[in-house]
Write a protein that binds this DNA or RNA. Structure first.
Lengths: 204, 204
DNA sequence: TGCATTATGGACTGCGTAGTCCACTACACC
DNA sequence: GGTGTAGTGGACTACGCAGTCCATAATGCA
């Protein structure tokens, strides 16, 4: 594959990721992608011989990279209670900016794909697994520094935190308010803080 | 509408609800419904002049009734810690029985419909609202009996619990394991118990 | 420069699916 | 028992969309 080919392929993947983010997998047609990229029909099948299904799987991987990258920025040095609360605020603000449309980029994708494409489902499973890992290592860092009880199961806590986020986003998407998201994250963080060794200092 | 008409209409709604539960909205075609009910094409449009979209909305209402009814049975007398844990176990068991396929009947529906049909979105919003109300009144009963701190915001707690459930189910559906669901619910219940006045007696 | 390989354009096909139409049947009510 | 309204059957239409094909253009390489 030549330089130009790689560029075209990349352009297709990025544009499709954007479209899927906004419209969902089902509602994103090959014609939409054509319109957004200027690519022709045959190019789509040239670069993704498996057709739309293959393209969707590549987009799933790309979308995972995007989200984890953004999370990494937010979660970098996630080893303080302040950082956790900043993360909470950032997630809520991001959802508000989108007018609560679309839910979680990965969650919506997973939900749309899980029962329909086994390979894509596995990719989303891996995506959540990596996300959980990101959260886990942050909590473990806090544990190592003595801010979290040593007997706290950080992996399960990270999983629960991720679930609260996903559920909160789904309810927020449905209600078109960030309120459920805030309630979910606040409860999850409160639970974490109840496992703190020293009481968090930044709160009342 | 005569007795026979009502029967046919009911048959269509019930069968479609079953199909949507298993296959999702998108994958359920009018031909599927025809096959499942023996109804003819024109009957579908006779009873639901708005076509598939209208039928889906009626099914959303029906599905909400079904879930809330089942929840009511599980949550009846949800005023003890034991009842909460029985509820947790029942939800996990139900998901395991389904091989973790399909997520939450209401959550999946909401996710599939929220960005595509405003009226259906509003129905699902109302569904979650009712569900939250069910959980809230249980928690409030516990509060009234002095088992939960009086300053606990039961409505937010109920919302957070619902979010944990939804997120846990989504992750379980994606991972094909009940583990995320268990982690999510256990963390949510642990948080509630940290707000108990007297320590729950049924646990260690 | 010439040949092979890769990239691109766009017409064409086929299919699944929602929705329409009209003829026919059964039932309720007078 | 006749008449009208509700119920039923199924062929037919329209259309959006995935996927195929082949011709042409650009690019890399010797």
């Amino acid at each position: 594959m030549t330089r130009r080919g790689r560029q075209t392929r990349t352009r297709i993947v990025e544009a499709t990721a954007d479209l899927v983010l906004v419209k969902g997998v089902r509602a994103t047609t090959l014609d939409d992608i054509r319109a957004a990229t200027g690519a022709s029909r045959s190019q789509l099948f040239h670069y993704f011989p498996g057709g739309k299904a293959e393209l969707v799987r590549v987009v799933a991987v790309r979308q995972t990279e995007r989200v984890l990258e953004a999370q990494r920025l937010l979660l970098d040095r996630l080893d303080t209670w302040e950082a956790l609360h900043r993360w909470r605020d950032a997630v809520v603000a991001a959802q508000r900016d989108r007018q609560c449309a679309g839910g979680c980029p990965l969650g919506s994708l997973a939900s749309e794909v899980a029962e329909h494409d086994e390979r894509a489902r596995a990719l989303m499973d891996s995506a959540f697994d990596q996300w959980q890992g990101l959260l886990t290592s942050g909590l473990r860092a806090m544990q190592d520094r003595g801010e979290l009880r040593a007997d706290a199961g950080v992996e399960d806590l990270a999983l629960a935190l991720l679930a609260s986020l996903q559920g909160g986003l789904l309810l927020a998407q449905t209600a078109r308010t960030t309120k459920p998201l805030e309630a979910a994250l606040d409860a999850a963080l409160a639970h974490l803080e109840s496992l703190a060794l020293r009481r968090p200092t930044h709160k009342a």
